[in-house]
Design a protein around this nucleic acid. Structure first.
Lengths: 180, 180
DNA sequence: TAGTACATGTAACAGGTTACATGATTGA
DNA sequence: TCAATCATGTAACCTGTTACATGTACTA
């Protein structure tokens, strides 16, 4: 139940609504987990039924009521136990690489453009992480251990995007010089 | 239907059985796609029903019959069309990073050990990719474009694992010096 | 007046995982 | 004799995606 634990890992930081969780997954947390709002609402329902989170409905004017979820003691105990367990490296499923693998089936410009497009996507994500780094982690030396761990996670995202960009450059160079 | 296309991308190289496909996904192809044998057999059934692949049963002595699948013209046409379409970057779901994110909930040694263990996993995968590189891609300059594209995909795997190892080292250094 | 943000959900379907099932051969 | 390799599959379940559904407030 990895999604459940990813949600708990966010709720342990601060109480949030399903909507907030979705926004968070779209932001820098997307660097280590992704979920759609449908999945989030379904999972929150299960977590509430199990007593790992509890919801408080907050009436609002001019907009829909909000359900603020917070982690319970049971939930926190469970999360702590899960954190201590070993886990596997996540399986890689990269559609772009499948396409490159059989790239000769399509026109070369096609593959080149697609790699250029992906380069832009990774560049944009990297810029976002760099912004977060500048805004939230300038004073790393004084930071708490918890904050340092958060920075480590962001560092993984920065590395990942940087490395993708470098690969795209390598790929584009090979494709552009393909005549040898 | 990404798994379907990943399977077609392997069958377009050479006819294979479900068993062979599974082995292939466990090998260097695992660098861009993963699937269990149950998924593979189910998907092959669908692909055969759609006429994208056709099977030939090969009787064997002393071991179960083998169904050799090969891609059909329709399948090849379809694969070529899919290759030409744009795709998204794959979503990241990294359980280890969720654990690091809430790492303060577990003893530090626990997190350190887990990162060390993951470092070993990535090191082993990298060694495997390096071996394949040495065995199959020494003569890159003379290679066909198709072979160069295959090398590019392997390069992505090499980069990915190398980058993970570097992050693990960074993480371990931070954890070991955590006193500031 | 059209689109985005806010805020929650249901239903149907597709994709992925785990457990179970069979059975011969080969090597430690 | 125990485990691994070869080779295929079914069934139940869990996870993830897509489409549909509702309704206000604000901004361009």
């Amino acid at each position: 139940m990895a999604l459940a634990h990813a949600i708990l890992a966010l709720l342990v930081q601060e109480p949030m609504s399903g909507y907030d969780l979705n926004k968070t997954f779209e932001g820098s947390v997307g660097n280590f987990w992704k979920a759609t709002h449908q999945q989030i609402y379904r999972e929150l329902g299960k977590l509430e039924a199990m007593g790992w989170v509890k919801a408080e409905t907050i009436p609002q004017e001019g907009r829909p009521d909000k359900k603020l979820y917070q982690i319970t003691e049971v939930g926190q105990k469970n999360l702590a136990q899960w954190v201590a367990e070993p886990c596997d490296a996540s399986p890689v499923k990269e559609e772009l690489l499948v396409k490159v693998f059989v790239g000769t089936l399509a026109p070369v410009q096609n593959i080149r453009q697609e790699i250029e497009r992906h380069r832009q996507i990774h560049q944009a994500r990297l810029a976002n992480y760099r912004r977060i780094e500048a805004e939230s982690f300038q004073t790393c030396k004084d930071a708490s251990f918890a904050a340092q761990l958060h920075y480590l996670v962001l560092r993984r995202g920065i590395r990942y995007e940087t490395d993708w960009i470098a690969w795209c450059d390598e790929a584009l160079e090979l494709i552009n010089n393909r005549c040898c």
